[in-house]
């Protein structure tokens, strides 16, 4: 059986930037094939050279991505996607404005062919606190935020510094335990959204990969090259020991004492997936570790992972 396909959920009210975010993913040039499930693809924008096919139910992109309508029966839609000859490498589901995104992530938690990736909740810096004070919406806002593994505070360019700080403090009071990042136009580094290690991408087109500090200072990432075979049990312990400032780990590593020479490693929020790598021998092995700017530095990471090297 192939490694489980990561499924991420994008939640947030109407107008928070969900579609903008999904448009970026669908039009990506990394070679990773995403399937994006949306309620309404009226607002999905396709770069002219990327569209391959459009029928009533889905849009297929020349880069291998597909955007399809969620339909009434998510389980059936997911089953269909996974049964394809070339199943997607990652699935993103757009939750409706008022849905609890966790109920969608549950589908991944229940299906051995899926890996529960991040629940990403977008909030609009302009309207979040208004919505949170509106008794029609306040509990729905709270539920969404409680469900998140990552909060994207979007439209920060449209509020002044005081408002921005107040909104961030309000969010931190709710969720001090997860990364909250401030964006404009929902511009989130691609590596944060993708659970697929670049070396595993189906098309051998490596994205320009960020090392060290990201230009927007939203995230830091470290690349730990692994050439020596690791002990999976110890690797798992190391992953479990990572602090909550680490949002994602992804990569392919060589392993000891197993029939399969390489394993795919993914950590998303607190979920860990380690599965045999079925593809051709990867061009590069190692782990990409992504977190907020206060994540452990290289020396600390080395310590955490030292036990197994």
């Amino acid at each position: 059986m192939a490694a489980p396909v990561p499924l991420s959920v994008i939640g947030g009210f109407l107008g928070t930037g969900k579609t903008t975010l999904l448009n970026q993913l669908l039009n990506n040039r990394s070679g990773i094939r995403f399937a994006v499930l949306v309620n309404d693809f009226g607002d999905i924008v396709v770069d002219g050279d990327l569209i391959a096919d459009h029928d009533g139910q889905s849009i297929t992109f020349a880069n291998g991505c597909v955007c399809c309508s969620l339909g009434n029966d998510l389980l059936a839609t997911l089953t269909q996607l996974l049964a394809q000859d070339e199943p997607p490498e990652q699935i993103l589901v757009e939750a409706s404005g008022v849905a609890d995104p966790r109920t969608i992530a549950d589908f991944a938690a229940l299906d051995s062919e899926l890996f529960r990736d991040l629940v990403i909740v977008l909030v609009d810096a302009q309207t979040l606190r208004q919505r949170a004070a509106d008794d029609r919406l306040s509990d729905t806002v709270t539920r969404q935020i409680a469900a998140a593994d990552l909060i994207i505070m979007n439209k920060c360019d449209l509020v002044d510094a005081d408002e921005r700080r107040a909104t961030r403090l309000w969010l931190q009071a709710q969720r001090g335990d997860i990364p909250i990042i401030e964006t404009q136009h929902a511009q989130v580094p691609f590596d944060v959204l993708s659970a697929v290690p670049p070396s595993a991408a189906s098309v051998a087109k490596m994205p320009a990969h960020h090392h060290g500090r990201n230009h927007t200072e939203l995230f830091r990432s470290e690349t730990m090259d692994k050439v020596e075979a690791v002990d999976l049990k110890i690797l798992r312990q190391s992953l479990e020991a990572l602090p909550s400032s680490i949002l994602r780990v992804k990569g392919i590593v060589p392993v000891q004492d197993r029939d399969e020479p390489f394993f795919l490693v993914q950590l998303s929020g607190r979920e860990i997936e380690i599965a045999p790598w079925r593809g051709t021998a990867p061009a590069r092995t190692g782990l990409i570790i992504i977190g907020t700017p206060d994540m452990p530095d290289r020396r600390q990471l080395d310590q955490i992972f030292r036990a197994e090297s």
Binding site: L14, S96, G97, D100
Partner: peptide, 8 residues
């Protein structure tokens, strides 16, 4: 629960 966004 809202089954539709009150703004939608």
């Amino acid at each position: 629960l809202w089954y539709i966004d009150p703004e939608e």
